[in-house]
Design a binder for these strands. Sequence first.
DNA 1: TCATCCAGTTAACAACTGTTCTCTGGATTT
DNA 2: AAATCCAGAGAACAGTTGTTAACTGGATGA
Lengths: 222, 222
Amino acid sequence: MSHTLGIRQAQKQKTRQALLDAALGLLAEQSLSSLGLREVTRAVGIAPTAFYRHFRSIPDLGTALVEEALGSLHPMIRTTVTSADNSEERIERAIELIAGHVDAYPAHVRFIARERHGGVQPVRDAIRDQLARFAEEVKDELAKDKESAGWSEDDLLMLAHLYVDQMLITASLFLEAMEGTEEDQERVAQVASRQMRLISIGRHHWLDRAGGRGHVRGRTAP
Amino acid sequence: MSHTLGIRQAQKQKTRQALLDAALGLLAEQSLSSLGLREVTRAVGIAPTAFYRHFRSIPDLGTALVEEALGSLHPMIRTTVTSADNSEERIERAIELIAGHVDAYPAHVRFIARERHGGVQPVRDAIRDQLARFAEEVKDELAKDKESAGWSEDDLLMLAHLYVDQMLITASLFLEAMEGTEEDQERVAQVASRQMRLISIGRHHWLDRAGGRGHVRGRTAP
DNA sequence: TCATCCAGTTAACAACTGTTCTCTGGATTT
DNA sequence: AAATCCAGAGAACAGTTGTTAACTGGATGA
C-alpha cells in the first residue's frame, strides 16, 4: 500500500537529505557549534534561506543527525552484544563488527563521538537519551543469557553501560587508526579485544564474592 | 635565587592567564572550534589585537589549556591509581577522589571531555598524547603491585588505558550530575564504583585462563 | 482548468569575524 | 639620563554570519 509520495515531497526529502549529508561532511573537520547555516546550504547548492524550509536551526539539524547516526548504529550494537558472552572467538567477531561499522559509516561515528560531549546541549541530550536506550536494550539482551543468573537488574544495567561505553571508545580508536597503517588498526583491535575479554572475565566472576548477594557495605568474615 | 620576574613580564603572564580563564569560561557552552578570538579578548577587557602577544591562534590557546587542564588532572590520576587495587574501600575512595576533582575543576574536566574528540586537530593530538603519558604512568604504578606478577607489559598497558578511559567517563558523568540532585550524584558514584569493581575482578582473574599452568595468585571458579 | 500551496530565490540588514598596520607610553636596559 | 623594548590600543580591511521580507514558478487538488 505504498503511496508514491508525490514528486514534490520527494524533492523536499531529497534536499533535506542533501543538507544532512553536507553537514555530516563538513563536521569532519569542525564541531557542530561552529557549523554555519550558510556553510551547509552553500555546500548543497541552494539559497541560505531555503534552510528554514527543513530545519529550525543548526542544533535542530544536529538532533536529526543523531537520529540518523544512531539509527545506523543500532543494528550493530544488537549483533555485537548478542555475541558478546564468554567465548573468545565471539569477542573477536564483535570487534571486527565494530571495525566494519566504522569503515562503513566513519562520519556518523565521528559525529557521535564528537558531539556526545560537544557544545550544543540539545544534541548532547539527544545522544545521551539514545545511548541510554541502547544500554537498556543491551541489558535486556544480557538478561537472556544463562550467565546472568542471579544478577540484579541494576548490575545488568551497569554492565550494559560499561559495554556501550567500551564500544564507543573502541569505535573512536578505530576511526583514528583509519588514517594510519594496517598495523595500527590491528593493534587497536588487539587491545580492544583484550579489554573486552577482561570485562567478560570480571562479569564471569562477579558473583564469586563472599557474602553472596546484595550490597558491598558490611563485609563480614566468612 | 628567585629573580622576581619584573613587573612587565608579571603583567604579561597575568593577562595570559586571564585569557586562558576567560576562554575556559566561554567554553562551558560551546566548543573550541567556534570560540572566537575577539570573544575572548572582549571577555578579558583588552583589545583584540593584544591576543597575538600571547597566542598565535585559538588552537594554540587550546593546546595551552590542555597543558593546564591535564596538569591539574595529573595528581588525581596518580593518587587514584595507587589506591585502585582490589580492596573495596579503596575503590570507593578513588571514586570520591574523582568526584572531588570534578567539583574543584569542573571547567577543566569539561574542556578535556569535550575537546578530546573535538573539531580542532592540534588540541585533539595534545590531549591524546597527554592521556597516553598518563596511561604509561598508570602502567608503571600497576607494575609495582603484587597482583601484577606474571603480567606482560602489553597487558598492563591495556589495563591502564581501560582505567584511564573509565576515569574520564566517570568524571564526565559526575559533571553532568553536578547540576542534578544529590541523589543523582550518588547514583553515578554507585554505578562507577561497581564498574570499577568489575574491572578489578577481571584483573584479578586475568591469568586464570587455560593453559593448564598453575597461576600466580589465581583463584578458580567452582 | 484554475486557484492554492510551498520549496526555493533574491535582496538587504546589522552584526560579527580574523588580520594588517601604525601608534603609544610605561618598563627595561645601557 | 637617554635609548630601547614591547604589551596593548586604535582604526581600518574584506568577509562572513543569521534572519527578515517579498517574490517566483512548478506541483497539487478542486
